[in-house]
Amino acid sequence: MQAYLWTIAAALGAAAIALLVVQTVHRIVRALGRRSVLLAELAQHAHRPFQVAATVFAVQAAVRIGTGLYAVGTGWRQALLHGLVLLTIATTAWLVASLLLVCEDIALVRFRTDVPNNRQARRIRTQINILRRLTVVIIVVLALGVMLMTYPAVRGVGASVLASAGVIGALAALAAQSVLANLFAGLQLAFGGAVRLDDVVVVEGEWGRIEELTLSYVVVQIWDDRRLVLPTSYFTTKPFENWTRTQSAVLGTAEFDVDWAVPVQTMREELRRMVEDTELWDGRVCVLQVTDATGGSVRLRALVSAADAGRLWDLRCLVREHLVEWIRDQRPTVMPRVRTEIGDANSDLPWQWVQPRRRPVRRRTEDVPDDARVFGGSDDGDARSSSFVGPDEVVEAPR
C-alpha cells in the first residue's frame, strides 16, 4: 500500500510541477507576444495542448520511476504505463497539430482579403485552409497508427497485413471512389486556381460567393443568404461561372424593348449622365447599343461596369429604374406598342401617308464619348477587342 500511495503522490507532484512550469512559460510568452505575432498566437492557441501534454509526460515519468523503485505488480504497472503512453502519443499529436495551425495562422495574417485587389491573397488563403485540414488528417492518422503499434498483437500481424495490402487497397479504393475523387478535387481546386475563397460564382443557376472550401465539399453563399453545398468534384467535372477569377470588376447588362421611334443617341446620353452621378459605376464601360430590331420593337442593351458583383447588381437595377422612368416621363411615344391598321389601299388617312422626315445631322462634340461600341471607342474597349483578335496571318507576296 505504501508503494501505491508513493506512486500516486509522485504522479500528483509531477503534475503540479508540470502545470506550474507551463503556466510560467505561458505568462512569459504572453508578455513577449505584445511585440511578436508568432508568440501571441502560440500563447493563445498552443497553451492548452502544451499544458496537457506536459502534464501527461510528467505523470508518466513519475509513475515509471515510482513503480520501478518499489517493484509494483508487473501486470498493473504495464497496464498503467501503456495507458500513459497512449495518452502521451495523443497529447503530443494534439500539440504538434496546434503548432502547425499556429504557423498557418501566421501565414494567413500576411494575406489580407479586405483590400480591393485581393485575388492573390484569396488564392493563398484557400491553399492554406486546404493544407490545414489535410495536416490535421495526416497527424490524426499517424497518431492512431503509432498508438496501434504499441500493441504487440498488432505488430505481430504486420507481415500478413502487408501481404494482403494490395487486395485491401484495391477494395478500399473501389469502395471510397467518390471520397477519393472529392479529396483530389479539393487539392486540385486549392492549387489549380479555378476557384478560391470569396470568389463570385454562378452554379446550378444560383449566384453567390465561395464561403467555405474543404477537401470534400464547397459551400456557396447565395445572394439571398441561402447556402448551396456541393461536392468538390462538381467544380472539376461541370462547367460553372467564376466572375472574379482574374479581377473583381465585372460587366453587366440591362435590356429594353421599345418602339422604333426611340432616339437612341439621346437615350445613350441620358444613360451616360445617370451613371456619372452614381458611385456604383467604376468609370470603365457605359455603352448603349441596338442589339435587335424585329417583331415590331427595338431591343436596346445598356452595358455598364462596376468594381464588384454586388455593386454591379445595384447598378443594373438603377439603370433599369432610371431609364424606364425617363422613357415614361420624357419619351412616352417610344413605349412598346402594338399597331393595328384598318383600311385598304385606297385609304387616304393622313397618318398613312406621312412623308419620311429627313434626320438632322448631329455633330458629335469632343466632350461626348463614343458610347456606341463595346469593342472600341475607348481604351477599355480597344483592350477588350484585342483579346478576341487571332494571330496575324503571314501573307506571302505573289510570285
Rank of each mutant, 00 (worst) to 15 (best):
A43V: 07
F235W: 04
G283E: 10
G73T: 15
D292Q: 12
A194F: 04
T236S: 14
V220Q: 02
Q44C: 01
F111A: 08
Y70D: 06
A176D: 11
F184K: 03
A293Y: 04
L134T: 14
R358W: 02
D371F: 05
E396I: 09
C103P: 00
V179F: 10
V102W: 00
R27V: 11
A176R: 12
V219G: 00
F256A: 13
V389F: 04
A97Y: 05
V389P: 01
R339Y: 01
H47Y: 14
A309G: 03
T24L: 14
A9F: 09
L162D: 10
L80S: 12
S347Y: 01
G186S: 00
T294I: 03
N129D: 00
R299A: 06
V319T: 15
L80Q: 13
Q330M: 03
W76T: 15
V338Q: 03
T365V: 07
W6Q: 07
G166Y: 05
W6T: 03
T135G: 14
P391A: 09
V361Y: 01
P263C: 05
R268C: 09
L189G: 04
D308V: 01
Q120A: 13
T88R: 09
G83R: 13
A302I: 11
S305N: 04
V25L: 14
W243N: 06
G381C: 06
W223G: 02
T7G: 07
F256W: 11
R364E: 15
R227A: 08
V29H: 01
L213G: 04
V72R: 08
A173S: 08
V195D: 00
A309K: 06
L19P: 00
D259F: 07
R30Q: 10
R331I: 08
V219M: 04
G186K: 00
A61F: 02
